[in-house]
Amino acid sequence: MADTLSPEVALRIGLAARALPDTDPKRLINVLVQALGLPITPAKLGRLKVARLKVAADGELGDIEHEHLKTAVNLLKGIGVPVEDTPEPLPEVQPYSEGDMPGSIRVACASNHETRVDGHFGSCARFLIYQVSDREVRLIAIRKTGLAPEEVDKNVFRADLIADCQLLYTVSIGGPAAAKVVRAGLHPIKLPNGGEAAELLDDLKNVIGHNPPPWLAKAMGVDARERIRFTQTEEEFA
Results as ranks from 00 to 15, higher is better:
residue 185 G to M: 01
residue 169 Y to F: 15
residue 144 K to N: 14
residue 133 S to T: 07
residue 163 A to T: 04
residue 113 H to L: 13
residue 137 V to C: 01
residue 157 F to T: 05
residue 154 K to Q: 03
residue 113 H to V: 13
residue 149 P to K: 09
residue 183 R to T: 09
residue 128 L to W: 06
residue 157 F to G: 07
residue 168 L to K: 10
residue 185 G to E: 08
residue 174 G to E: 05
residue 177 A to S: 06
residue 162 I to T: 02
residue 167 L to G: 07
residue 131 Q to W: 13
residue 121 F to N: 07
residue 155 N to W: 12
residue 113 H to D: 00
residue 139 L to C: 04
residue 126 R to E: 08
residue 145 T to R: 03
residue 127 F to L: 02
residue 144 K to D: 14
residue 173 I to F: 10
residue 131 Q to Y: 01
residue 151 E to I: 14
residue 168 L to T: 13
residue 130 Y to P: 11
residue 141 A to G: 09
residue 121 F to E: 07
residue 160 D to G: 03
residue 136 E to P: 07
residue 177 A to E: 10
residue 167 L to Q: 12
residue 124 C to E: 05
residue 125 A to W: 12
residue 174 G to D: 10
residue 147 L to N: 01
residue 120 H to W: 10
residue 153 D to L: 10
residue 154 K to P: 08
residue 185 G to R: 04
residue 118 D to L: 01
residue 185 G to I: 00
residue 157 F to H: 08
residue 176 P to K: 03
residue 150 E to W: 02
residue 152 V to A: 13
residue 180 K to M: 03
residue 113 H to N: 15
residue 169 Y to L: 15
residue 126 R to M: 12
residue 125 A to P: 11
residue 117 V to Q: 02
residue 164 D to L: 14
residue 171 V to N: 10
residue 115 T to V: 15
residue 172 S to Y: 15
residue 175 G to R: 07
residue 163 A to R: 10
residue 160 D to I: 12
residue 176 P to R: 08
residue 155 N to R: 01
residue 163 A to F: 06
residue 175 G to P: 10
residue 155 N to V: 08
residue 114 E to M: 14
residue 171 V to A: 15
residue 160 D to M: 09
residue 170 T to A: 02
residue 136 E to T: 06
residue 149 P to Y: 11
residue 125 A to C: 00
residue 162 I to S: 10
